[in-house]
């Protein structure tokens, strides 16, 4: 059996007076791409933010490689969670627009104090995946296009090896050719044994990448299984995802 990288048990999250997650159970096996699908407002982004400690787990627990990182009695702060080897690409990308592409990358690389200390081999690999980043290396990140910003957001998450990458809707608003770039990048990461938990509304991307799938609704996981099985079963797709699937295909 594949080892679990991430294990959420009965996770509840409250944001102020709102009860968003109602007992999420989610297992993310090592070295695979796990897709987290669901309608808008199902709680997918909140799940990722809860894993990162940006929202506290009010009940239940989150374990990363057997170590508790979230939940009463063992909630770690976001920087400590990140330092365990988890990278996070938020839906809004979190690009530092006043900083250059280079400066964004230097910040993401915790081991580098300046650009000259970035791992050049890895950097060339990233430039191969996203040539635009090399072209606009000294350009303020705020001037990049939406797709280029998304590439930078993903590049920051992979500038150093991380065990688990959480990515929130990377394909949102992007042209198909750029989506293909991203799919290619995630495939290469998977080949390097990086575990990925990917929130996506784009079913084409989900089908192309996913090994496992978890579908959320109303703050709970309502289905888990192999991605291939969901991809083939149209009735199941419609029951779980309804119109959201068709709208994004």
């Amino acid at each position: 059996m594949t080892a679990l990288v991430l294990d959420l048990k009965g996770v509840h999250t409250h944001i102020g007076a709102y009860h968003i997650l109602h007992g999420v159970d989610l297992q993310v096996p090592a070295g695979q791409v796990t897709m987290l699908l669901g309608r808008n407002g199902a709680g997918k982004s909140t799940t990722l933010r809860t894993i990162m400690g940006l929202w506290a787990t009010s009940k239940g627990s989150v374990h990363f490689k057997g170590r508790q990182i979230g939940g009463p009695g063992g909630q770690l702060a976001t920087p400590d969670i990140a330092q365990l080897g988890i990278a996070y690409v938020p839906e809004a990308m979190g690009i530092f627009t006043d900083l250059t592409v280079q400066e964004n990358m230097v910040l993401a690389a915790r081991n580098a104090r300046r650009a000259a200390e970035l791992d050049t081999t890895r950097l060339e690999w990233i430039f191969g995946l996203f040539p635009a980043l090399k072209k606009f290396w000294l350009y303020p990140a705020g001037k990049l296009s939406g797709g280029q910003k998304q590439m930078l957001a993903v590049a920051r998450a992979i500038v150093e090896p991380r065990e688990l990458i959480l990515i929130d809707e990377p394909s949102k608003g992007l042209a198909p050719s750029i989506i293909n770039n991203l799919i290619d990048a995630f495939r290469q990461l998977k080949a390097q044994d990086t575990t990925i938990l990917l929130v996506e509304q784009n079913f084409q991307m989900a089908r192309a990448l996913g090994d496992r799938v978890a579908v959320m609704d109303n703050g709970r996981i309502v289905h888990t299984g192999a991605m291939a099985q969901l991809a083939e079963d149209e009735a199941l797709q419609h029951r779980l995802l309804g119109l959201s699937l068709g709208a994004h295909q």
Partner: peptide
Amino acid sequence: RTKVGLLIRAGVQDREMVESLGYRI
């Protein structure tokens, strides 16, 4: 020109992201 300075400038823009990158703001 220093990493601490970069962190300060980045933190002024988006402190949540600086924390998500693993720095204690």
